[in-house]
Design a protein around this nucleic acid. Structure first.
Lengths: 131, 131, 131, 131
DNA sequence: GTGGTCTAGACCACT
DNA sequence: GTGGTCTAGACCACG
């Protein structure tokens, strides 16, 4: 289910968030679908339950999922349209682009890189991390 | 000289690195030019000397500057051509793009954002940070 | 664990780097092994945490170790093969040889000295420093 | 006369010492020969007089030269045999060799490097520094 | 408990 | 006055 890279500098809970969002983007989980339980995800990936819980709480705060006590977590109606998530994504991305520009990366480099990434098929062996 | 956002989640020394590299990119400081002393930079920005020192140490490890004890810090001959710097910039950028993709940001969003950023004139009131 | 000479002109963090690399060379710590925590190393050697941190930061920049926040510091996959490390070692060594030559040290002196050093068994009571 | 590299991390006074010793080793200056005056050396190389004086004082302390107030500095009888100088040279060299060993440099690497250096002809464009 | 960042302030070497 | 090193102690993010 989750493909965590224990050697990445990206926090594990961020990797979980990113991968769950990726699964939602790919419509593996559609709005109102029930996500696997926190315990199932943790057991499956060999992670601490608290780490997975932290990720799920973040997603809930971002409006990507909602949880029904005793029943589990579900994909929100507007999971991908979440204003909060998009705002953060844009903020982080523009910061990264500015940093890259300072380091000599050209506009052409960026568009080429982005095209290359969007042409990829799946997350499979990808870490989907930030650096 | 430096424009630091103490509330940003980007470490202060990273903001310093980014802004100094931006100044080098804009040729405010050219190869072999003397940079302001770390004490002057620290005093000017209201930072601790060690924080500025940390940034300079990183830039030195990246081959962007070199420092001569008792004399000062100077821009390297090939400051912008540093392979190490470009490599890191690309790695961080592709991570950020992947993360953005998972969050519903489209390829068009990214190219538009990048164009907007590259059309900006200067760093003026920008923080030029990553988050 | 570490054997630091506070009176040496070699910076303490360099002594730490040298000794950790020696332990890695001797395979006391192999790739992906967890190193002692910087706090443990500092306490054990009677040093400040920041001094040990500085050494670890350098080793990380050299690709010898990697550190995962909240988890610890680990030996890199290619710790000893790091090109950067070898390059620096050669540069420093050739400088030292040239300096020695100017001071009347003969080629025979050097080869004899080197043989003597490479015949030593371990680092035991050695400081393994540069000065 | 002196060939100083202002961009080297080796202290200028060390470069002066190394080059004067090299000139003595090459018998450009033999025992009891008068060395150029401190002011002449400084003017010739574009250095501060204090920096040259510092180097000369060091050489005097090492027994490599002796100075006669009002007359100048002269090469000592046993300039190259100076126990102090040789002792320091050996200490520094063995430290450098140990450091290199920790970083994966082999005994063969060192002997090859040393042979290469001793086969060089002169100091001409050499910095003769330590790193 | 682990590494990451930051501050404050000290002392040293070099020019 | 410049960079280089070191200490002490604080707070944060992560697991």
């Amino acid at each position: 289910m989750l493909n965590i890279d224990g050697r990445s500098r990206v926090p594990i809970y961020e990797q979980i968030k990113n991968q769950l969002m990726e699964l939602i983007r790919l419509e593996v989980y559609s709005p109102h679908d029930k996500l696997p339980s926190i315990r199932a995800l943790a057991a499956d990936a060999g992670l601490n339950v608290n780490t997975v819980k932290r990720a799920m709480l973040d997603l809930e705060a971002d409006g990507v999922v909602y949880s029904l006590p005793g029943r589990g977590s579900f994909v929100s109606e507007d999971a991908l349209g979440s204003a909060s998530v998009r705002k953060k994504a844009f903020a982080e991305l523009s910061g990264a682009i500015r940093a890259a520009r300072s380091k000599g990366v050209t506009l052409e480099d960026i568009t080429a890189l982005a095209h290359g990434i969007y042409d990829e098929k799946s997350i499979e062996s990808e870490d989907n991390d930030n650096g």
